[in-house]
Design a protein around this nucleic acid. Sequence first.
RNA 1: GGACCAUUAGCUCAGCUGGAUAGAGCGCUGCCCUCCGAAGGCAGAGGCCAGAGGUUCGAAUCCUCUAUGGUCCGCCA
Length: 598
Amino acid sequence: MTALAQVIHGRERRNLTMNIFAEIRTLITTTLDQMVREGSLPEGLNFDPITAEPPRDAAHGDMATNAAMVLAKPAGMKPRDIAETLAARLTDDPRITSAEVAGPGFLNLRLAPAVWQSIAKTVLDVGTSFGRGGLGQGQRVNVEYVSANPTGPLHVGHTRGAVFGDALASLLDFAGFDVTREYYINDGGAQVDVLARSVYLRYQEAHDLSVDWPEGSYPGDYLIEVGEDLKAKVGDIYLDQGEDVWLEEVRNFATEKMMDLIRADLKSLGVQMDVFYSEKSLYGSGRIEAALDDLKNKGLIYEGVLEPPKGKKPEDWEPREQTLFRSTAHGDDVDRPVMKSDGGWTYFAPDIAYHYDKVQRGFDMLIDVFGADHGGYVKRMKAAVSALSDGKVPLDIKLTQLVKLFKNGEPFKMSKRAGTFVTLRDVVDQVGPDVTRFVMLTRKNDAMLDFDFDKVLEQSRENPVFYVQYAHARVASVLRKAAEAGIATDDATLAAADLGLLSHESELGVLRKLAEWPRLVETAARSNEPHRVAFYLYELAGDFHGLWNKGNEVPSLRFLQDGDVATSQAKIALARATAIVIAAGLGILGVEPAEEMR
RNA sequence: GGACCAUUAGCUCAGCUGGAUAGAGCGCUGCCCUCCGAAGGCAGAGGCCAGAGGUUCGAAUCCUCUAUGGUCCGCCA
């Protein structure tokens, strides 16, 4: 097996980033090292803040470095002097055609077209692994998401969390982390008792009994079937029996049914969890006690009385001694109770135990994805993980904001009562998993998202889903046409094409965009922000469409050049490389690339 | 009373962890389809980055305060 094949098959954890910006940055720092050795720079300088980035304005060149400005002060030199020397050295490298000092001391670099042209070859060589790599270095990260209560089908809010968490997990995987996707089942609290009682009522109905629905139960239709299933399983043995007889078994039965439902919902969206972790499994196993003992040994558990929260009706407040976690020692605002006045655990206690378990499983990093309404729990969870791991395991908590539903521009109110409750399945059935996923990622996770059932299906430029898919489909169309013309277009052939023929500014523009992909993956992964991938794909598609449109006026920019196989193959190589990166990006988002638009 | 998040073009939003003259789509204005790639394309106008201080070579980005909007605030989940 060749080294390349090993890489493609994931056997080797080689760095495949091929990040041209990182490469040039390395060139800059080694050149600076050389300048230090020659005495034109003092020793002991810190090169960490030095960057090599695409400039905001393309007129400034291909890449800019702040090296001279960053080093000027510690070196006690003028930025321009450093920049001049550095510029002279850098142009010795064949990759760099010009280096100009600009502004306060920026160094603007222009790279040889061959550097950009070779990007297409690299992409064709390694396929959708282009950009995979480096950052994670195999570190283990746990991404917990959805974690909806097992009391009913997933709704729209869960959908966003599911899509976001799943895309984030894929992004981190792509960036070289060893990712575990995990769902925490809240099957230990009072809400599953309510579920069990609701199912029992449906069970009675299945026996043709009429029942009253008390306030706070779950009257949803989805439990009718569960009641009937229960009847089919146990017959009439629970009729006229007290809760003490049936509650536990009905609870287990109902919870399993709900998890089946949720698993099916997730599957319809293409979400596949690695671990479903049961809250209930923590009870009676000594794990909660063990987690709290750990905190106790660190002196972080005490009996005390909390201050009443200000601004909230103080008449409800009764000072009362409780078992508290000193979360303030790890950045929280107030200490948090872990035990209720009746001696039972608070909701927070099993959460602590669950995160303790994650820490003990040896993850290097934890991520929780919560709905924005759980924002109040961020600090206490971070405090808990910080305490439990002695500050060694970082926990990042990403909140997903509300989704506002629209239908043809009109707001669409969701109401459980009115039966206009919109489930994940409703959304997926109407617009499909691909559109659902992409649209959910067209906003930053902590920004509100408008979801219009009609607009997301529109085939127009302002619909990013379509726009990106269309770019991919256009490439597929080029390949089909090329095949008709008898031109070989397998990736190996294209990779060997004379890419020097790609010299037009629009073509180089697309190549530069492709070159940014590895860098984008890194920054997106570093900040745990998969939406950046969606925006990048939109930009890449835009550059590609721009090139395509220019072909209307400038025939020499068309991908198929009659009678000129070599040029056609070079251009097709560019198109195919674009499609590969789009496919890789869509793969992270969990969206299937389209071969044709219909 | 406090915490967290937001505030960027008329509208909806990006802005690559501090870089140069702040971007995209929509909308607006003006051009461009006899045919081979118009389910459109090209160009233009439009900004005190909520406000005020601070940090430094440099701030939409970091810190403090203020304003507005959202989420949340013992034992529920």
